[in-house]
Design a binder for these strands. Structure first.
Length: 626
RNA sequence: GGGCCUGUAGCUCAGCAUGGAUAGAGUGCUGGACUUCUAAUCCAGUGGUCAAGGGAUCGAAGCCCUUCGGGCCCGCCA
């Protein structure tokens, strides 16, 4: 709590002054000055008052700043009226430094209570268990994981779910491949099972459908058996999907992603939750039995501005969206929970991963939330909109169910070409079916090779184990940062060559700033002593760094309230840029006198800790050496 | 035909929710800084009709309307 203190103080002083002057109440804004020459903080109150008072903003600014100067408070040093009309403030850095550095040294720095311990569910990943994860899936995983980390920091009670569609068409496809397409259920040596299923079996079976109608028929049969779940085929499929899932989760683990519970679609289907929900929807008048037209005999959801959506076909069989509705209602805790939970695994950070089971041998646990965030790319917006509407009717609460959409990842023309598709330079959508994608493990591997070489070059004395660890951390940092730094509604055009860049606005750049700070502290003769008053920090590099550190909780609040992970990414980058400027221009270990060395060591320490916390929200590790 | 997203420097993107000061980064290109607290860095230069047009406003990249370009979605498939 630091820059916030400065803003709050200015806001309340201005409010008081405005009241004393009998000015009308206006919703003014206190924000960071857009340029350093304007000071540290600016306020637009004069523009809002100008019309009402029939005075020019500058005149009002002069009156207000004159009043303000009578009592500048704790954190403000100077108040000026700018000819443009703004009221500008210069911070009292002795106080601000003190307050910022002392709070940033705390372990819980940045924690902010936005969530008030509200139970919130974040569902992400949810990749069909018939293939390996590709870079498109990675965007979903990283958005979901980052959001759940941010919400956790903002004191929501977060539960992370991964929905496993183990009874869908895509799983049926690889089962057809194993049973009728001649593919061995054992992958070739050295190939991960998920890669084998996706890259080889799935792609080939899909191709064979074109020429073999018999195989297409088999698929329909397999799909039916999967939903029933009793046949030999279904048991075999269960083994296969679990093996694939296991491999997918290894990739997630590599990315630093963990979950609380795996929800299997097959069990939702068999739990009969659908029946309950369907009856409820009938009672509430959400679904109608269509009497005429092309949907005659179907149960449909009426939509004012779009086509009606069929929920139950005229033959009585529910469509796939009917699986999503009970699941959504379950996530919101609106149904009696039919599941028991058994331990699936213990994850890297010690967090236990549970899975749903219908067998009564498991525990009774609660993975539902007052609010639910479902991370799915925006191609599914229409369906998610329908589900959101139904859930808001069920819960009579508009925002209980929230679809967090994002634009998908496409391949650059160049990268498509390396995969054997000539798009005349244009970017293209990835396709699992056609085998046109870049696997997540692959990109991590080649990034790892590059980061290993770089790390070794710079740190020849480090042992093999450390080098491997650092290179993996940096590779993951590069990928995670690339996936989160831009806005959710902008598509990412993935290019193999460009993704290997480790300079500029990248994860490694930020990690490098951390390593530099760590190195200074490591080489320092003494530990930083915080029991001083920080009066020697006067250069713009030092003050800017303190200010940047002081913005942490404001950024977390912003990111949590707007569900916008990129805000934290930008913050990390800004923090790193500010530190690098400090590093280049200000000497720490060879500063003029002892107390200055100590004060600077304190800022470096606070920077390092704050950056590590911010990077942790992005799931990016902070290496001590690079 | 309908719906959602998008258009800012050569390229990739911030800024838009909540209008206000000279529109910012990265990358590219040009030049400069390493016997160092690690150059995965820093400094300087280069580069913009904020897609176009109109409207409301004292004031628009931002708000409203129209047009144009790009992407995605719209099955009794999943």
């Amino acid at each position: 709590m630091t820059l916030r203190l400065l803003f709050d103080e200015i806001r309340s002083s201005l409010k008081q002054i405005s009241d004393e002057l009998n000015y009308p109440q206006v919703d003014f804004e206190v924000s960071e000055a857009s340029r350093s020459e304007f000071g540290d903080v600016s306020c637009n109150i004069t523009f809002l008052l100008a019309k009402n008072l029939k005075k020019r903003p500058f005149e009002i600014a002069e009156i207000i700043s004159k009043e303000y100067r009578k009592n500048t408070g704790k954190f403000v040093k100077e108040v000026t009226a700018h000819p443009s009309g703004y009221v500008n403030f210069v911070a009292n850095f002795v106080e601000l430094n003190n307050s910022t550095i002392k709070s940033a040294a705390q372990k819980k720095y940045g924690d902010i209570n936005v969530g008030k311990n509200l139970k919130i569910v974040v569902e992400h990943t949810s990749v069909n268990p018939n293939k390996a994860l590709h870079v498109g899936h990675v965007r979903n995983i990283i958005i979901g994981d980052t959001i759940s980390r941010i919400l956790h920091k903002a004191q929501y009670d977060v539960r992370v779910l991964n929905y496993v569609d183990d009874s869908g068409l895509q799983v049926a496809d690889i089962i057809v491949g194993f049973k009728y397409g001649g593919f061995s259920p054992e992958p070739p040596k050295d190939q991960k099972f998920d890669h084998y299923c996706g890259d080889v079996v799935y792609v080939n079976v899909t191709e064979k459908y074109e020429t073999d109608p018999n195989l297409v028929e088999k698929r329909t049969q397999v799909l039916k058996e999967l939903e029933e779940g009793t046949s030999e085929i279904a048991k075999f499929a269960n083994e296969i999907t679990r093996k694939v899932l296991d491999e997918q989760l290894k990739t997630c683990c590599r990315l630093g992603v963990t979950y609380d519970c795996l929800n299997f679609e097959s069990q939702i289907v068999r739990s009969n939750l659908w029946k309950t929900v369907f009856e409820k929807m009938k009672l509430m008048g959400i679904v109608y039995l269509e009497k005429e037209g092309k949907n005659e005999g179907c149960w449909v959801i009426k939509s004012a501005d779009e086509e009606d959506k069929v929920l139950v076909r005229s033959n009585g069989v529910a469509t796939y969206i009917a699986k999503d509705i009970p699941y959504a209602a379950w996530k919101l805790g609106m149904l009696e929970d039919p599941f028991y939970y058994k331990k699936y695994a213990e994850q890297i950070n010690g967090r236990v991963l549970w899975e749903t089971t219908l067998e009564k041998t498991g525990n009774k646990l609660d993975f539902t939330g007052e609010k639910v965030i479902t991370v799915i790319d925006s191609r599914q917006s229409r369906l998610q909109k329908i589900i959101t509407k139904i859930m808001s009717d069920f819960k009579s609460q508009a925002e209980a169910y929230f679809h967090l959409g994002y634009e998908s990842v496409t391949l650059s023309g160049k990268t498509a070409k390396t995969l054997g598709v000539d798009t005349v330079g244009k970017q293209m959508q990835m396709s699992g079916r056609k085998g046109i994608y870049v696997n997540a493990d692959y990109i991590l591997d080649i990034l790892g090779v590059k980061t290993y070489e770089e790390a070794k070059k710079r740190n020849p004395e480090l042992d093999e184990l450390s080098l491997v660890e650092i290179s993996e951390q940096v590779a993951v940092g590069a990928l995670r940062y690339a996936m989160i730094k831009q806005d959710l509604d902008k598509k990412i055009t993935f290019d193999l060559t460009e993704s290997l860049s480790l300079e500029g606005d990248t994860g490694p750049y930020i990690q490098y700033a951390y390593a530099r700070a760590a190195r200074i502290l490591e080489k320092a003769e003494d530990e930083p002593q915080f029991d001083v008053s920080f009066t020697d920090l006067v250069t713009k590099y030092e003050l800017n760094l303190v200010k940047a550190i002081g913005k942490f909780d404001i950024q977390i609040e912003d990111a949590a309230k707007n569900l916008s992970p990129k805000i934290i990414a930008r913050y990390c980058y800004d923090l790193a840029v500010t530190f690098n400027a400090f590093y280049e221009h200000v000497k720490v270990l060879t500063a003029e006198h002892k107390s200055l060395i100590n004060e600077r060591l304190c800022i470096v320490y606070c920077f390092k800790e704050t950056l590590a916390k911010a990077l942790d929200l992005l799931g990016i590790s902070s290496p001590f050496r690079m």
